[in-house]
Amino acid sequence: MKVLVPVKRVLDYNVKPRVKADGTGVDLANVKMSMNPFDEIAVEEAIRLKEKGVATEIVVVSIGEQKAQETLRTALAMGADRAILIVSEDKVEPLGVAKLLAKVAEAEQPGLVILGKQAIDDDNNQTGQMLGALLGWGQGTFASKVEVAGDSVDVTREVDGGLETVKLKTPAIVTTDLRLNEPRYASLPNIMKAKSKPLEQKTPADYGVDVTPRLTTVKVEEPAKRQAGVKVADVDELVGKLKTLGVVA
């Protein structure tokens, strides 16, 4: 079974985002960019499925600017087999991304598409579910465990009340949560090897998909800042504070 893993290049999770002074967005000039952490987990899960003999080939795909090649190379260095970059210098919304991925899935015929549950830049948490709808496939979102058996997959999901397990007919969609696995680091020899793995370039037009945004960003602002508080010296003073705040009688 082939596994398709979409990956996104985003602001590194360790970098504090700064809103641009002109209010048009977050400043991405000269800051560290990395693979979306949830996508790393998705790549790792695909590799583990391949190591178990469940997956036969891992295809990674990114929709974004030319620099997303780096992100794809990272996935190839981790262990993916080949990559597709659908180049768009303009931002593509989850709906457009899902439409492009649906076309890729139709061409590649994967048994599973494993995506991150959300990208940590726009925090949308939409693409996997949208792709499920467009393909008419089942979706196991927020996965903490994935078990493929025959022509179905059991997905344990992190839900508000705890954990829930669903059985999906394959082909199916899985979106990853944090505790699905711990992604490996690519070794130096694998980083070298990844340079010669195939990376195909496409455009949205190649797939005949209109990715015109449906949302316009009117402005981007900093959230209200909290007032700096006070430090108390000991527990008695803390209890006193809790009393003035009315937390305890």
């Binding site: 985002p17 602002e221 900093e222």
Partner: peptide, 8 residues
């Protein structure tokens, strides 16, 4: 967006 570090 960005973990609430910006409001769009």
């Amino acid at each position: 967006i960005y973990a609430g570090n910006a409001i769009a």
